[in-house]
Design a protein around this nucleic acid. Sequence first.
DNA 1: GTGGTCTAGACCACC
DNA 2: GTGGTCTAGACCACG
Lengths: 125, 125, 125, 125
Amino acid sequence: MICHIDATNGVPIYEQIGRQVTYAIANGSLLVGEHVPSVRELATQLAVNPNTVARAYRELQQTGILTPIRGTGLAVAPTAPDQCREGRRHILQDRVESVVREAQQGGLQLDDFLKLVHAAWPTSA
Amino acid sequence: MICHIDATNGVPIYEQIGRQVTYAIANGSLLVGEHVPSVRELATQLAVNPNTVARAYRELQQTGILTPIRGTGLAVAPTAPDQCREGRRHILQDRVESVVREAQQGGLQLDDFLKLVHAAWPTSA
Amino acid sequence: MICHIDATNGVPIYEQIGRQVTYAIANGSLLVGEHVPSVRELATQLAVNPNTVARAYRELQQTGILTPIRGTGLAVAPTAPDQCREGRRHILQDRVESVVREAQQGGLQLDDFLKLVHAAWPTSA
Amino acid sequence: MICHIDATNGVPIYEQIGRQVTYAIANGSLLVGEHVPSVRELATQLAVNPNTVARAYRELQQTGILTPIRGTGLAVAPTAPDQCREGRRHILQDRVESVVREAQQGGLQLDDFLKLVHAAWPTSA
DNA sequence: GTGGTCTAGACCACC
DNA sequence: GTGGTCTAGACCACG
């Protein structure tokens, strides 16, 4: 599993990890039953405190996305793909709504806003 | 000057105040040379601690948007409109880029993303 | 009397006025018995609040540099020149000591400091 | 890190702290990547309110001299030494220019001024 | 009246 | 443990 962490962008690291796992499952990069990397392994790979990875995994367990396999670590739960697709939609919808709200406070028109989006979308060129 | 503060959305109150002032100047609601509301006045109006408003105003001074008039309060600096338009563009561009990046990590296509935007834009209905 | 006021350099305006008068007397620009400008006159000339000029004059009276002449305003007191020369020496000595202290905290050597002085002294070129 | 604070000299405490850190970095007493003392630690050491230290540190962050390491404190940023040497030069040059201007308004000659400097410089005795 | 500084103490998120 | 935010209230200098 490949994971990009940005320790400076305000989003808590444990949440970035959780999202990356969520997205990977939603995309089918991680399949049901497959093991995620161990806490230690992922922690060293990301140069992050193991507690932080542990926290991310703990929250993924609490939402039923990961399930512990005795003695071998954590695996993707059967219900995870649906949950993750739904979770992805929810996260992105929230973020879009938030940035739209901000743009409106700033007095932008829809046209101006769409220009910003197209400018930011890399493959739209 | 009208100002909407949401104490629950994670963004620090002092930063929300700073942005509202920035937007007001960028929009021309606050003109060069005009006084902003006094710290105490705005604090009571927003039901917020005066220190919080003072912090927002202090940062606006440090960036040269507000300038102190000894004993009479703070006024909009001559260079402020340009700075504020630029600042507004910068804030929104950053946020759009960030959410676009997130959407791509989640595997969204541009079409799907634009649907989210249109759904979130209130006046597009 | 000519007076240069800088409203942005942190030094209170009333104190800048007081110093300018002190220096003028020490230099002999203002002679014993001569009248200083009226509060209103100087205030309009400097584009400053009359209270501020009044405060400066009040403090000069309290130190015996200015003396009130019934009905005609304030005049330079007989003892003023000596006081002002002493006052000038005191003010400058304090300021020099303060900046020297700062330079030493910053780890500067005497040589480096003298370079700064020569660079700043306009007629030393 | 050793720090001398004088609560009576008009200069705000938070600014004195900021300067001491700046000087320490400029002198090489604080190296790049090294942690500065924690807010609470320095606050107790200086017998000052933690908020005051926090404010000093916040401004050093805003200028890019300190950089936060999530959960472990603040460290000296890579560009800090250059910035701090430049900042030190700037602070001292400003102060020297200001006192030189004052001396000239007071009618001093360069010779007289240099005498004051030598008298004030402790190790020149 | 204005802003600026400082203190004291609470609460939060993160590591 | 770390920094960050916010509140509450006191005091000061300035105009």
